Simulated assay, not measured.
Amino acid sequence: MLVVHAEFPIDPEKRDEAIDVIRELAEQSRTEDGVIDYQVATDIDDPNLFRFTERYEDEAAFGAHAETDHFGTFESALPDLLTGEPEVTRFDVDSASEVEL
């Protein structure tokens, strides 16, 4: 499994526009083959910091995601929406299990 965690600092004046673009990206991404989970949330202390948590079955699914039209739309819109540098971290995971609380 491949996990991607990304943080995008969004310009407060462009937040509504960003939400529309991000919502479309998330909704479309969740329907892709090989996408296990695709979640976006805002930071509790900074509502203009959007955090993505993406889980893919494998490298091929991740690569296919980067080639979709909805990802291209997001990627094209992003420079105008940002107020800082995004941070993206990739994790290659051999195994995962649920934690009982």
Rank of each mutant, 00 (worst) to 15 (best):
A61K: 08
L49M: 10
V99M: 15
F52R: 02
S76A: 12
E59P: 06
E7S: 12
P86Y: 09
D33E: 15
V93P: 12
E32W: 02
E57L: 03
E32D: 10
L81R: 11
R30Q: 05
V88L: 12
A60C: 07
D92V: 14
E100Y: 14
F91P: 01
D37A: 07
L49Q: 03
M1S: 00
E59K: 14
L2Y: 15
A96L: 02
L81S: 06
F71H: 11
G72P: 07
Q39C: 05
R51I: 04
E75Q: 14
L2D: 07
G84K: 03
M1D: 04
V21N: 12
R30I: 00
F91G: 01
P79F: 06
S97H: 14
A66N: 15
H65Y: 09
E54Y: 00
A26L: 00
P47S: 07
E87H: 10
D94P: 10
S95Q: 09
E75F: 13
I44M: 14
I44T: 12
S29A: 02
L78I: 04
V4R: 10
S97I: 11
L78K: 09
V21Y: 13
E27M: 09
A26K: 08
T53H: 13
A26Y: 01
I36A: 03
R30W: 03
A96R: 09
A66F: 10
E100R: 15
E75A: 13
F62T: 01
L25E: 09
E59L: 03
V3R: 08
E87G: 03
D11R: 12
F74I: 00
D46E: 04
V99Q: 15
R30D: 03
T83Y: 08
A96S: 06
R90E: 09
A26H: 02
I22T: 05
